[in-house]
Computed example of a mutant assay.
Amino acid sequence: MIEAIGLTKRYGAKTAVDDLSFQVRPGAVTGFLGPNGSGKSTTMRMILGLDRPTAGYVTIGGHPYRSLPNAPRQVGALLDAKAVHGGRTARTHLLSLAQLAGIPARRVDEVLGVVGLQDVAKRRSSGFSLGMGQRLGIAAALLGDPQVLLFDEPVNGLDPEGIHWVRNLMKTLAAEGRTVFVSSHLMSEMALTADHLIVIGRGRLLSDMSVTDFISANSADFARVRVPENAPEEREKLTSSLIEAGGSVMSEPDGALRVTGLPLPRISDLAHGADVRLWELSPHRASLEEAYMRMTQGVVDYRSTDDAKAGLLEPPQAPYGAYGDAQGGYGAAPGYGQPQPAEAPQQSWYAPPPPGQNPYATPGPAPAAAPEPSPADAAGTKTSEDPR
């Protein structure tokens, strides 16, 4: 088990982790969530003794990591898949780690098979793709057959098959009674993998509960109700009945009704009593991503603004304010003070028009006249263009 008590880490005036307390219990996959810059990586580094806390402490099995005898046999971690000497082969890298921890060499070949790298064991890691590097990092974490495992973004760079494999691996490790602590930004994957969630924001604990409880606590469940599209009077009649019964009704973009405050059986009874046909009556539960976004919306440090594309949506200025027309004259530029036909397609200026249809093209210079033949040419001197 991992236990943090009052864990705090400051870097000068910046507080990366602020009085953080939690437990990661064995037998379950615990997801570690939070926005960028929330302190997740710093927390995992303190768990592994790579950073010293400014205040508080964290233990693994009741002991600080630095006090564990032969720690690689008890704790496995993947924090940075790129932390590998590029000149070493996959097998040599793992073999060096095994020798430092007193792990038999045969275990190296076993974990290479577990992560699917047995066929590239003799290739230098510098030639590995991002996904292959992730697999090698997971192999290093599994090398000592530890009871406690920490993974920071373990599916980064993996293809769908690899993501599915990591998901099943995490669940299998937890089912064996191990402590599995996984940091990830992929909410959809955490929803399928994690049993419990620890969520932090700006270094502070925001939530410590099961996935199911987290979604329920940070989302509003509602019912989706749909009536025939060609029966607006039935929609109005049902809406009135639902509101009179104490429900709240909102229109969805696709035409359905979002109903809160009433259970599904009550909605069905009200529709039946109002003689309204229902095409849909279904419960909606928010996703983990929706619940997470709702909880962390106030602790996000990096927010995007709308791209106004200032200066990009206006047509470019024509040279000298003139445009050539089909007759070789000059007229007003299309779109400058003249209304466009309703059926004219609207096109951004940076999208090139079809060849020969550029309305902004100016007439090019007339082709130069052919030069007068020189006396040598007139006398029949052979030139480079003379087929003879």
Rank of each mutant, 00 (worst) to 15 (best):
A121T: 11
S183G: 14
L206T: 01
R258G: 07
D307S: 08
N168D: 07
L238I: 02
E110A: 12
P315T: 13
R285N: 00
H63A: 14
T89A: 15
A194F: 04
P355T: 13
A310L: 13
P64L: 05
G61E: 10
R88Y: 15
Q357H: 12
P387E: 07
A13T: 14
Y323S: 01
R258H: 08
E234F: 01
L94I: 00
L78N: 05
G203I: 03
S126G: 13
L78I: 05
G144V: 08
P363M: 14
T59D: 03
T172I: 02
I103P: 02
G321L: 04
V148I: 12
E314Q: 11
R226M: 05
R91G: 01
Y320Q: 12
K14F: 13
A16P: 03
D19G: 10
R10L: 04
V166S: 10
A217T: 07
A332L: 15
A194T: 03
Q317Y: 04
L130I: 06
P53M: 14
M44N: 03
S282E: 10
G247A: 11
L136P: 03
K122R: 15
Q327D: 13
V155I: 14
H85F: 15
P355Y: 14
P341C: 00
L192R: 09
M44V: 03
A191L: 01
T260E: 11
R10F: 01
D145I: 02
G328W: 05
I198Y: 14
S129K: 03
D221S: 09
A16H: 06
Y320P: 00
T296M: 00
S348K: 07
S251D: 12
S67Y: 05
V211H: 03
M293C: 01
A191H: 07
N168P: 00
H185D: 11
P35M: 07
R388K: 05
L149R: 01
A71D: 04
W349E: 08
Q357C: 05
H85K: 09
S241P: 02
A274I: 09
Q23P: 00
V58P: 11
R294N: 15
E280I: 03
S374H: 02
P160D: 06
G162Y: 12
P371E: 01
V155L: 07
L205W: 05
G37W: 00
V300Y: 02
V227S: 06
Q74V: 02
L136G: 08
T8G: 04
Q347E: 08
A368I: 07
Q340C: 09
I60L: 14
D195S: 15
G162H: 12
L257Y: 01
M190V: 13
R106W: 06
G34R: 04
L48H: 15
L48F: 13
R88V: 07
P263M: 04
T179Q: 10
S240N: 08
Y302P: 00
D145E: 13
G356T: 09
R10P: 01
S67Q: 14
S96K: 07
S183V: 06
V166L: 06
A141F: 09
A322M: 15
G116V: 09
D213H: 12
F128Q: 02
V111R: 10
A369I: 03
G246A: 04
D159V: 11
L50Q: 13
G37L: 01
M170W: 11
D208E: 10
S21L: 10
K122G: 13
G311I: 09
I138C: 08
R294G: 00
I103S: 03
A223S: 08
L50H: 14
A274K: 06
T239W: 09
T30F: 02
E385D: 08
S126Q: 09
E161V: 14
